[in-house]
Structure formats: structure tokens, C-alpha cells
């Protein structure tokens, strides 16, 4: 693994808090992206990804240097996301519309410019609609689809992140893919 990352982790373990900023900088986009795709809106994605980094920091002693750091970090982030989704489960379907709108905000936040060209607005809306479809998947299938198709991870890595056997992960990918196929075929 990168010497740079190992060096940072060693420093953080030794109490050099500042070294953690480099780790956050390097992984913030990946972690935020996973959290955003999982919870479906910018505010909660920010809460979840921030919490994920704080947990990584406080539990850095438990990180096994022989394993991939991003796997460990993704595992914390997906667990927190799934917990978050479980908590708001009761009003899930009622919220679907609202979630979609919040997803839009999430994309709007990407663009720093005040006035967006029309085609960019269309792209944002389209992106938000895809997120809205992802939001309707049950959390375990959602996690499988996000890690496989958005993060491009192997089944082995997914199995470590999700703490599930490879065969189970594969089944979740299949079911998630089938669910999405049915939702997206009208597109």
C-alpha cells in the first residue's frame, strides 16, 4: 500500500491529529459519494460522511494495516448509511418525493455558478431522477449497486465492506440490478 498513507496513519496513531487532514482530503469525495448515493440527499450525506471520518479517527487503532484502508473506510460509511436508512424507514415511501427534491439540491450544490446553462439544468434533473430510482431500492441492494457500479469494486472487496459472503453480495447485485431494470426500462 502507499507509503504516504501508511505514514499518515502512523502519525495519527502517534497522536499527530494534523496528519488526519491529509487522509480526509484524499478520501472525502469517495466517502461522500457513497454516503450521498446511499442516503439520497446532501445534508444527510454530509452528516454520514463526516461521522464516518470521525469514527475512522477514533478507531484508528483498530485499523488493520494489512488490509486496504479504503475498504475499511467504506465499511464504516456504508454501515452508518444503512443505520441512517433503517431509522427513517417508517416514512420511507411517503418521503420518496421529498428525497428526490433533496437529491436535486445535492446536485445543485455541485455547481458553484449561479446561473446554469439550460442543458446543465437538464443534466442535473436527469441525474436527480436516477438517484430517485436508486433511493427506492432496499438498502442492501442499494449498497450492492452503488459499490459495484459507481465505485467499480470487486465482489471480494464488496464482501469485506458489507461483511457478507461473496455469494450473498452477488445475489444482492442481481436483485438490485433486476429491480433497477424494471424501474428504468421506461426511460
Amino acid at each position: 500500500m502507499d507509503d504516504w498513507l501508511n505514514q499518515c496513519i502512523r502519525e495519527v496513531k502517534a497522536g499527530e491529529t494534523e496528519a488526519f487532514a491529509q487522509i480526509v482530503d484524499a478520501y472525502k469525495d469517495k466517502v461522500y459519494q457513497v454516503a450521498f448515493r446511499m442516503v439520497g440527499n446532501a445534508q444527510e450525506a454530509q452528516d454520514v460522511s463526516q461521522e464516518a471520518f470521525i469514527r475512522a479517527y477514533t478507531n484508528i487503532e483498530r485499523y488493520d494495516v494489512n488490509r486496504k484502508f479504503s475498504t475499511w473506510l467504506f465499511r464504516i460509511a456504508t454501515n452508518l448509511s444503512i443505520d441512517r436508512l433503517r431509522k427513517k424507514k417508517p416514512d420511507f415511501s411517503l418521503d420518496a418525493e421529498v428525497n428526490g427534491a433533496e437529491g436535486l439540491d445535492g446536485y445543485a450544490q455541485l455547481a458553484a455558478t449561479d446561473a446554469l446553462p439550460d442543458e446543465q439544468v437538464v443534466t442535473l434533473e436527469w441525474q436527480a431522477s436516477i438517484q430517485k430510482e436508486i433511493d427506492t431500492l432496499p438498502p442492501k441492494y442499494r449498497a450492492a449497486i452503488i459499490l459495484k457500479y459507481m465505485e467499480d469494486l470487486s465482489l471480494q472487496e464488496m464482501s469485506e465492506i458489507l461483511d457478507l459472503p461473496v455469494a450473498t453480495v452477488k445475489t444482492h447485485v442481481h436483485r438490485g440490478r433486476e429491480a433497477l431494470r424494471k424501474k428504468l426500462k421506461k426511460w
Binding site: 491529529t17 488526519f20 487532514a21 480526509v24 482530503d25 472525502k28 469525495d29 466517502v31 461522500y32 459519494q33 450521498f36 448515493r37 446532501a42 454530509q46 460522511s49 463526516q50 471520518f53 470521525i54 479517527y57 445535492g106 446536485y107 450544490q109 455541485l110 443534466t123 441525474q127 436516477i130 438517484q131 436508486i134 449497486i145 457500479y149 459507481m150 440490478r177 433486476e178 433497477l180 431494470r181 424501474k183 428504468l184 426500462k185 426511460w187
Partner: peptide
């Protein structure tokens, strides 16, 4: 199936909001 995979993969990559690192560091 091919289309739905393509659609999901086309979802643009999202970046963390501004000051994300600073916020994390001050919350440690």
C-alpha cells in the same frame, strides 16, 4: 439490464462539499 447499468454508471461523480476537511478536523 445493459441500459440500467449504463444509466447508473452515467450518474456523475459527486464531490464532497467545500470545507469538508476543515469541518471534520474541527469536529474530531
Amino acid at each position: 439490464v445493459k441500459k440500467s447499468i449504463a444509466l447508473v454508471q452515467s450518474a456523475s461523480h459527486i464531490q464532497a462539499p467545500k470545507n469538508f476537511t476543515e469541518n471534520v478536523m474541527s469536529a474530531l
